[in-house]
Design a protein around this nucleic acid. Structure first.
Ligand code: MN
Ligand code: MN
Ligand code: MN
Ligand code: MN
Lengths: 218, 218
DNA sequence: TCAAATATTTAGACTTGTCTAAAAAATATT
DNA sequence: AATATTTTTTAGACAAGTCTAAATATTTGA
């Protein structure tokens, strides 16, 4: 089996690969995992040895299909656990990430499959991220950010890009949640802030917010 | 915080202390944890350093109240997770021990309290073991074994001493579960086997079984 | 194009938890 | 009481994962 640390590296590489296409640099990984570049080099060598990543000195890393499969499985576990915590145990969406970070490493296939059934096969986690199925299939269909919605268009919030507790609590304060219907009233060129209508209230939100909200046009 | 390994040692010492009263020997622990005596000595020194156990060279170990508190907490987590797996996810009682062995180390107080609430404050785990409450209070009231029940007396099965998968599967085959009402029909002095009546069927069970079943007289 | 800045790797050290082999202490046996 | 056996501790080694500091490679940009 793979250690907790190996799994964290694979997941980190997977998520960086998703968001920038090209091969993943040592520093990218170090930053994501809050570790040092030298530690990353060591671990990447080990993962390459196990055929989980492709690696040539000084040329970055990418997951092999074997490595990707494991990474997706960890993501699946992470998101199902988050769904459990929010849907069944009544945690709020800003409390579950760190817990899922631990739970995702529990080793058992039947556990995660039974959990999925217990939750009624949810398609998304509490942050709107898609949950891979048992075979590792996953649909990424979130691409539109609120920041690029046109004036007077309406949209529904379907996900958050930043899952940090601070951001999520801030959204709570602004009364923005998954499923909220927002209408863009106006945009300010100076700081890219925008005024939106939400629940019949109009208020301004910063670019920092609008560029971290995935939406779907209505 | 404490490492997974430290927690496993504390739990082992706790369970040995419970079952033999006196102070716990290095070999006791090594056997329980399937490790070597030298490893145990090392770890005990570390635990003593942290004031979790009392230790004097060559004189065995005992938990301090601080150590006991942690041990009971791990036991609480272990049993609540087992209850969750059986009551909610539909695992059978012989499948949950190893999984709970992992889950018991998840670090979060609110998680375990919410889990307990979700399960409706169960008093016992799937093997009949009592679940400590939030403050660490635990009632041990299982002391009567089926093997010492008198002929023609009736009793209810309230727990198993051995939680191994083999034993539990064997009980399934014999149709013995928590709550089963058994009547002792006869006892064989030669091998200490006994004939019991269960669900209107009479059959013989070995001493190996009867001495591992906790019962309550009716 | 070549020096300066940045990124990556290597070398060597440290921590945690484990092990084997040997030494020392405690207990059992004669 | 002296010896043999068993238990426990110590000494020294190792693997995993991390770190700092130094060396090396790559990229930037004057
Ligand atoms: Mn993790
Ligand atoms: Mn999430
Ligand atoms: Mn454990
Ligand atoms: Mn149990």
């Amino acid at each position: 089996m793979h250690s907790q640390s190996e799994e964290n590296y694979l997941k980190a590489i997977y998520s960086i690969e998703l968001h920038n296409g090209k091969s993943v640099s040592t520093n990218n990984i170090a930053e994501k995992l809050k570790t040092k570049a030298s530690s990353v080099t060591d671990m990447i060598k080990k993962l390459a040895e196990k055929n989980l990543v492709n690696y040539k000195k000084y040329q970055g890393t990418s997951l092999t299909s074997k490595g990707k499969k494991i990474a997706v499985k960890i993501v699946r576990k992470h998101r199902l656990w988050e769904a459990f915590l929010v849907n069944k145990l009544d945690f709020s969406w800003d409390e579950v990430h760190d817990l899922a970070e631990q739970l995702e490493h529990i080793k058992s296939d039947s556990l995660i499959d039974k959990l999925e059934e217990f939750l009624d096969y949810p398609a998304f986690d509490p942050h709107g991220d898609p949950i891979p199925d048992k075979d590792g299939n996953i649909e990424h269909h979130k691409n539109l950010m609120l920041s690029s919605v046109d004036i007077l268009d309406e949209c529904t919030v379907i996900g958050v890009k930043d899952s940090s507790s601070i951001f999520l609590k801030f959204l709570d304060k602004k009364n923005i949640k998954l499923g909220s219907t927002l209408k863009v009233i106006s945009k300010e060129e100076f700081d890219n802030s925008m005024v939106i209508e939400n629940n019949k209230n109009n208020y301004s939100i910063s670019h920092q917010i609008s560029k971290n909200l995935f939406v779907k046009k209505i």
